[in-house]
Simulated scan of single mutants.
Amino acid sequence: MPSSTPIEAENVAPGETKMRARDVSVYYGKKKAIDEVSIDIFTEFVTAFIGPSGCGKSTFLRALNRMNDTISSARVTGCIELDGEDIYSSDMDVVQLRARVGMVFQKPNPFPKSIYDNIAYGPKIHGLAQSKSDLDEVVEKSLRRAGLWEEVKDRLSDSGTALSGGQQQRLCIARAIAVEPEVILMDEPCSALDPIATAKIEELIDDLRGRYAIVIVTHSMQQAARVSQRTAFFHLGNLIEYGQTSDIFTNPRESRTQDYITGRYG
C-alpha cells in the first residue's frame, strides 16, 4: 500500500539526503502512473530503480527534474525537494533545476555540434566560464571525468554524432557534468549499448559515485546489483521496497520483490 513515509531498509544509517519525495503521484490525463511514492535520494549512493516495463520507474525519474512538464497531459502532486527546496514551487527556475539535476537518456543524444561545443554549450549559457581558457578547462575536466578525454582530445572539432554509441553516451554524461550538477539521473543509459560499452559506462558510474547523487533506471537486475548501493523496486506505479541493494537482492522483505528478482514475473 502507498505510504506517506519513505520505504527504508532496516539497520541502514542514512547518508546526506539530496532529494526527498513525499506522496508523489504522477498522472497522464486521468491515468495515475505513480501512486503516492515517498523516497529519499542520498548523495553517497548510486540508487537503482528496477521493476517490470510500465511500472512507473522512468516516469518517477523524470519527475525528479520536472521533465514531465514537457508532456501536456502530465500532472504531478505531492512534494519533491532538492536540498529542502520544493522543485515544483512557482519560484523554481526550471532551467536552473535541470542544470542542478542533469539527465542522461536511454538513447545517446549528442547535439549536432563538435565534441568541444557539446561540452561547452551548457557552461556558456549558464555563465560558468568567462573566457576561452575557462571553457577549455571545463571541457577537458568534464571529458576526463567521463573517461573520454584520451579518446577524443585530438579531434575535439569533430562532430559528436560521429562517435560510437558508447562514446556518445559518455559524451552526454560529460555534457551533464559540465554544468556542475548535484544530481545525475540516468534513464536506462546502457540499453542501446554493447557489452563493452556498457562495462565502460558502469565503470564511469562507479567513478562518479560520491561526487554526485546518481539515480539509474535499469531493466537489468545484474546491472543494478553491480553499480548501485540502494535499489528501489517499483510495481504498477507503487514503490514496493527500497533499501540496500544487497538486501533487496538477497533478502527482500516483500514477496512481490522476491517474485520479480527470481523471474516469476516481469
Rank of each mutant, 00 (worst) to 15 (best):
S164A: 14
S164T: 15
G165L: 09
G166Y: 02
Q167H: 11
Q168L: 13
Q169T: 12
L171E: 10
C172L: 13
A174Y: 14
R175K: 11
R175F: 11
R175E: 12
R175S: 04
A176P: 09
A176T: 15
I177D: 09
I177G: 05
I177P: 02
I177F: 12
A178E: 12
E180V: 12
E180Q: 10
P181K: 01
P181F: 07
E182T: 06
V183S: 06
L185W: 05
L185F: 09
L185D: 06
M186I: 09
M186K: 07
D187A: 07
D187R: 07
E188R: 06
P189W: 09
P189K: 02
C190K: 07
C190P: 00
S191D: 03
L193W: 04
D194P: 01
P195T: 09
P195L: 15
A197D: 08
A197L: 00
T198R: 13
A199D: 13
K200E: 13
K200I: 10
E202C: 04
E202M: 05
E202A: 08
E203T: 15
E203H: 14
E203C: 14
E203Q: 15
L204K: 02
I205Y: 02
I205W: 00
D207T: 13
D207G: 11
D207R: 15
R209S: 05
R209A: 08
R209D: 10
G210R: 05
G210A: 02
R211V: 10
R211Q: 12
A213T: 01
V215R: 01
V215Y: 05
V215F: 07
V215S: 05
I216P: 02
I216T: 06
T218S: 02
H219D: 04
H219S: 03
S220G: 11
S220Q: 14
M221Q: 15
Q222P: 10
Q222L: 14
Q223L: 08
A224G: 08
A224E: 08
A225K: 15
R226N: 14
R226S: 14
S228G: 11
S228F: 11
Q229G: 15
R230E: 05
A232N: 01
F234I: 00
H235I: 07
H235A: 08
G237K: 00
G237L: 00
N238G: 00
L239C: 03
L239Q: 01
L239I: 08
E241K: 06
E241Y: 06
Y242S: 04
G243Q: 04
G243T: 07
T245G: 12
S246P: 08
I248H: 00
F249T: 06
F249K: 11
F249D: 08
T250V: 12
N251I: 01
P252L: 06
P252R: 03
E254T: 04
